[in-house]
Design a protein around this nucleic acid. Sequence first.
DNA 1: GGCGTAGTACTACGTCCCGTAGAGGGGTAC
DNA 2: GTACCCCTCTACGGGACGTAGTACTACGCC
Lengths: 117, 117
Amino acid sequence: MKGLGELERSIMDILWAERGPLTAREVGRLIADRDLAPTTVMTVLDRLTRKGFLTRTRDGRAWRYEPAASRDAYVAELMLEALDLTGDRSAALQRFAQAVSGSEAEILRRALTELEE
Amino acid sequence: MKGLGELERSIMDILWAERGPLTAREVGRLIADRDLAPTTVMTVLDRLTRKGFLTRTRDGRAWRYEPAASRDAYVAELMLEALDLTGDRSAALQRFAQAVSGSEAEILRRALTELEE
DNA sequence: GGCGTAGTACTACGTCCCGTAGAGGGGTAC
DNA sequence: GTACCCCTCTACGGGACGTAGTACTACGCC
């Protein structure tokens, strides 16, 4: 999977937080604090589409952009990719299990239990 | 945590696979298939040290390089960083739990159970 | 005791990614 | 038909990284 830059991630965050697809202009308004040129937003949206993180559909003359996958799916994929870097997956998983906080361990435990059934 | 490039990762892999610290020359021999100039290996070892991935100690005129952390710790950290990217850690963890293979789910389950005790 | 060798530090260059944006073309609305 | 909006294409500067040369120093050998 391709990586994301800092601005790219900010824009993905905006789109992940919305329920419907947004136009470049709308994204621009939601990230107005960065005071970016409109074309900057468009360029980044375009790059994200090329990288497969967004899909876009026509809306009149404009495009509407929407995440291709949920943020959770993205995060889970990143975690799996990290796991693939190790030679000893078991050891890495054990370390990971020890490192997550208690409440998160509980969530993991429950998710794994449901799997079992 | 800083990222690793492709050559940097290869060299970390070599050092993670060895039990003792290596000199630049030794690393060079272990990566001879890439046919790199000796200074290239030294440069990368130096950058890895600056980034905090390696520590080095004198051995005569030479330096001996050694990973600052185990590969498993590195991988677990990457996984935690990925997890930090999400707004909904619980959803991401559930996705992750569903995505790991059965045997790995079992490893996780056991690690979590040990934690509980 | 000079010379090759090994090791180091420092500098450098090309490439790719990414943040950033301008220029120009073509609908739309009034 | 003019002002505006949105698109596409092109571009530029900085930083990371792969790659390596140069120059200085210490050690061993003859």
